[in-house]
Design a protein around this nucleic acid. Structure first.
Ligand SMILES: [Mn+2]
Ligand SMILES: [Mn+2]
Ligand SMILES: [Zn+2]
Ligand SMILES: [Zn+2]
Lengths: 150, 150
DNA sequence: TAGCTATCTGCAAACAGTTGCATCTGTATT
DNA sequence: AATACAGATGCAACTGTTTGCAGATAGCTA
């Protein structure tokens, strides 16, 4: 996202009554810093590492992440662990295949879901938010023989 | 599922070292009784209602539901609430479109995802468990104007 | 620049689900 | 029918996330 895109976005959010608070800036900055997905706790740790004197309550981090998801800036994804992971939307577009047996994650081309998105819009008028999602199942190796490892 | 299918299933699970305990029977019975999806708590309440003298620990209910999911007897689905819902697989096949704005749920024809399932198997050797899932997004009404209700 | 107010934050408490561990039991074997 | 033991249960403690509420503040308005 360019800087002017960002300014424009903030402006349009303000028009709708949203505020850009220091806490929200810190969460956004943490997400930009980490180049992978991050858990709420990793975001918290990143903020502490960069600004040891500032503290952002976990509740605020969770609420900020929900807000960022709702305004379509951030994806919220389960990778089969017992916590969600968050990532800025816009670049490194992909989805995940998550093996329920070995917990392995395969990243896949997002175009595979485009026909589904189009059909949901056409048939049900539904605008699916299919960005950076997970599909659960069994990877090739785990399909043959239940012998588990990893 | 017919009775002999059921017997056969139990037999094959036993062969793989699984046990059919009273607790597991009770959870299965509760799921058969309720004709919709049920939360863990609703399953618990149903068991209490039918057998006031018996008590099944919530931990056991959660573990049983995970087991039933892993052996492919039950689906585990988020409908946008902060708890999962569970349903016996096999009949009333459908998926859900869940509106993130108004929380409405639309049930859809499951065949829409078959091409995706086939392509994931062909291209990645991945056997997707795409049964009774949810797709999140915005329903037709909520796409026009952010005026929220419901 | 100060005032106003809807929005946001922090804290405490609650909730849904998971994990570790000691004990118990379903099932195969005898 | 008795034995043996892998696998299941219950309890307590814990983790990740949400909610209610009182007080603080971003950003509009004058
Ligand atoms: Mn990813
Ligand atoms: Mn359903
Ligand atoms: Zn696997
Ligand atoms: Zn809606």
């Amino acid at each position: 996202m360019t800087m002017s895109d960002y300014d424009e976005l903030i402006h349009s959010l303000r028009e709708r009554g949203h505020r850009l608070t220091p806490q929200r800036r810190l969460v956004l900055e943490a997400l930009q810093h980490g180049d992978h997905h991050m858990s709420a706790d990793e975001i918290s740790q990143t903020i502490i590492a960069h600004y040891p004197s500032i503290s952002v309550d976990p509740t605020t981090i969770y609420r900020t992440l929900r807000w960022l998801r709702d305004v379509n800036l951030v994806s919220e994804t389960s990778l089969g662990q017992n916590h969600m992971v968050y990532a800025l939307l816009g670049s490194d577009d992909h989805h995940h295949l998550v093996c329920e047996n070995c917990n392995g994650v395969i990243e896949i081309d997002p175009s595979i879901l485009e026909p589904v998105r189009r059909e949901l819009q056409a048939r049900y008028g539904f605008a699916a938010r299919l960005a950076h999602i997970s599909i659960f199942g069994l990877c090739a190796r785990c399909q043959m023989g239940d012998a588990v490892t990893r």
